[in-house]
């Protein structure tokens, strides 16, 4: 177990180095940050001086080595755009994204599981059919369109919910939360649905397919023959055995919820790290972009690790095999 974790950690460091390297080489194509950092009347000499001060003229390997050297000390430098430490800029924005991703994940998981089980058990019911048809919308419509449609209906036409932003936030230490105010909760609804809708349909379809599969197996038939109630069979046996793939997908999707919150955050002006990343690309804010990419790869690596470990908890066979071999 410990060896497994250590091996995974070493792999993770490698993955992050590769991500940093690829990200860094891409920055050669995003343009010149200097033009965004000065006004149009700034002289050439001043621009040149600035470029040198920032080390943008150094060869790629030098820039990369400097970045990695600083990054291992958790020093990501100053944001070109905000002229404040990158760690601080990201720290300000991180709670917004994590809250949004968490709420979306819970929303997707709860409704995905419930609807998945329902559509599997009432396979031929009209409601189940309608839900299945409706889920195609979630799978096929692009996020930004869903977001805009929701804004249109609930903010512009009905006026129930805010069209953008996070509403009033409360600070608990450095962590800003929108979960404690009505305003903040209202602001969460539309972005959370937009971000979670795809995951919801994915989980629902997965649960449904897995359930149908499991319900056909012999042990379910035997369970029925034993005279167990439907409730015990469906939830105690069938659902439990569908959980392994569902967990994998949900775990991996949690990473993408954070990483791909970019579009949702842009549409709703949600002040999280996704929007920060977009702003940084437009400004060519290299320190923030590189820190963001490294952080996202860290998220994925950690989530994958946790998911792997969770398998042990959910699937007793893994524990047995390991024990037998060890």
């Amino acid at each position: 177990m410990a060896a497994f974790v250590i091996r995974r950690l070493i792999q993770s460091v490698l993955v992050m180095l590769v991500v940093a390297f690829v990200a860094f080489s891409l920055f050669n194509f995003v343009g010149d940050p200097i033009n965004n950092m000065v006004g149009q009347e700034t002289s050439l000499a001043e621009r040149e001086e600035m470029r040198q001060d920032l080390g943008l003229d150094d060869p790629f390997p030098v820039q990369f080595a400097r970045f990695v050297g600083n990054a291992v000390q958790f020093n990501f430098g100053l944001s070109f755009r905000r002229q404040a430490p990158v760690a601080e800029v990201i720290g300000e924005r991180l709670p917004a994204t994590l809250e949004l991703a968490a709420v979306s994940a819970v929303f997707a998981l709860v409704f995905g599981l419930a609807l998945g089980v329902y559509t599997a058990l009432r396979r031929d019911g009209w409601l189940a059919q309608a839900i299945m048809a409706g889920s195609l919308v979630g799978v096929s419509l692009p996020t930004f369109l869903i977001g805009i449609i929701l804004i249109w209906i609930f903010a512009v036409e009905l006026g129930w919910l805010p069209s953008f932003g996070r509403g009033e936030v409360v600070y608990i230490g450095w962590w800003s939360t929108g979960l404690l105010t009505v305003d903040g909760l209202k602001a969460l609804v539309l972005p959370a649905i937009t971000l979670g809708l795809f995951q919801l349909t994915l989980i629902m379809r997965l649960v449904r397919a897995e359930m149908l599969e499991v319900l056909r197996t012999d042990y379910i038939k035997f369970a029925r023959a034993r005279g167990l109630t439907n409730r015990v069979i469906n939830f105690g046996h069938a659902l439990k055995n569908t959980m392994v793939p569902v967990l994998t997908i949900t775990g991996l999707q949690l990473g993408s919820l954070i990483a791909f919150a970019i579009i949702t955050e842009t549409v709703f002006q949600w002040p999280g790290i996704g929007l920060l990343f977009i702003q940084s690309i437009q400004f060519v804010d290299i320190p923030v972009m590189s820190a963001y990419l490294v952080m996202i790869s860290l998220f994925f690596v950690v989530i994958n690790l946790v998911v792997d470990l969770l398998y042990y908890v959910v699937d007793p066979r893994l524990r047995v095999e390991r024990a037998a071999h060890g």
Partner: peptide, 18 residues
């Protein structure tokens, strides 16, 4: 003052009276 980057959202924020 609040920045709203997306064109559609910015217009929606005006139309909705926010």
């Amino acid at each position: 003052f609040q920045p709203i980057q997306s064109d559609a959202t910015r217009v929606a924020a005006l139309l909705s009276g926010e």
